[in-house]
């Protein structure tokens, strides 16, 4: 009976753990290995449009064919390097703008009274629950040459001729800040809310002026929120496709757009895979930091 019971418990654990584990291995881990594999093969016409990496010869000889051609293309053409750098640049600027706008917002929400706090939070989260695509699309109408913003500025007499905002990097930045702002505000709010207000009172009591207290107490204590929020904005922004595609112009080079074009327009799967692998390498450090934070957070709640 006891041995049976223990077996039941062990099988129970397996029954609980196996489905999500197996799902993630098959549908998340394996695909990445496939991406790496394909990035090391050559493009051909056919289905699928790439050469196999491993091949069993007629006399049972295993041939491994590794083609570094795709990565050669990546390093050879400076278009790619430029796209990578531009993605990093735009993502970094967008992250900084989100922080600049999001920090005071999160601070104000965290310091507001309980009755309005939930409402304010709900209002930050609400756009997230509506369609991302539609919200990006909304900016086209506002930013385009004959759009609302130019109309307003012309009417106010600030400008004489309409500005070209749509199809520039600026439009992409506006779109990114707009789309990712909630991801900055929510983690910032979470850390700021937890902060003990008596710390600021203690600082004031010890002779610290409010601004100094903010710099030397609030800011360091909200660092985890700043890092988490920044990564939540930065990492997806680097790989963003929809925003540069809709708001950017033909010369807005971003790595997500390049990948899309290689895959859908050129049907060059190996190069698309190589672009993805290179993007992953680029993001490995920020992703690791994020995972560390996530791990610490879950340890902490235990």
């Amino acid at each position: 009976m006891t041995a049976l019971d223990r077996a039941v418990r062990r099988w129970g654990r397996l029954l609980v753990g196996l489905p999500p584990y197996a799902w993630l291995v098959v549908f998340f881990l394996v695909p990445f290995l496939i991406v790496i594999k394909i990035s090391l093969s050559q493009a051909i016409m056919g289905i699928p449009p790439y050469t196999p990496l491993l091949e069993w010869g007629e006399d049972a000889v295993l041939t491994i064919r590794i083609a570094l051609g795709s990565f050669g293309t990546l390093f050879g053409d400076e278009l790619y390097a430029f796209a990578y750098l531009n993605s990093l640049r735009l993502a970094a600027i967008a992250t900084f703008c989100c922080l600049l706008l999001g920090y005071p917002a999160a601070y104000a929400i965290a310091r507001s009274s309980h009755s309005v706090r939930n409402l304010l939070l709900l209002l930050v989260a609400l756009p997230f629950w509506t369609s991302f695509l539609i919200r990006v699309y909304a900016w086209i109408g506002i930013l385009k040459t004959e759009g609302l913003l130019n109309g307003l500025l012309l009417w106010l007499g600030v400008i004489d001729t309409p500005l070209q905002i749509l199809e520039t990097d600026l439009a992409v930045l506006i779109g990114m800040v707009y789309s990712y702002l909630p991801f900055m505000v929510l983690p910032l709010f979470a850390t700021l809310e937890k902060m003990d207000m008596s710390l600021l009172e203690a600082a004031a009591d010890l002779g610290c002026r409010p601004f100094q207290a903010f710099i030397s107490v609030t800011l360091p204590l909200s660092m985890p929120g700043i890092v988490a929020g920044s990564l939540l904005v930065f990492i997806p922004a680097v790989g963003e496709f929809v925003i540069p595609d809709l708001l950017g112009g033909p010369d807005t080079l971003m790595i997500g757009k390049i990948l899309w074009a290689e895959f859908f327009d050129n049907r060059d799967w190996p190069v698309a895979s190589a672009v993805a692998v290179a993007m992953l390498v680029l993001l490995v450090v920020p992703v690791m930091i994020f995972q560390r934070l996530q791990g610490q957070a879950t340890e902490g709640t235990r």
């Binding site: 584990y21 993630l24 291995v25 549908f27 998340f28 881990l29 394996v30 695909p31 990445f32 496939i34 991406v35 394909i38 699928p48 990564l231 939540l232 990492i235 997806p236 680097v238 790989g239 963003e240 496709f241 997500g256 990948l259 899309w260 895959f263 799967w269 698309a272 895979s273 993805a276 993007m279 992953l280 993001l283 920020p286 992703v287 994020f290 995972q291 996530q294 791990g295 879950t298």
Partner: peptide, 30 residues
Amino acid sequence: GRTLFTGMIAAPLVMPEIITGLAMLLLFVA
């Protein structure tokens, strides 16, 4: 395999969608 498991849970949270999409399609084709 706990470390691998936590990694596989946390990664999709920040993974650029375009990479996940590409990887998924390549898996389905394979």
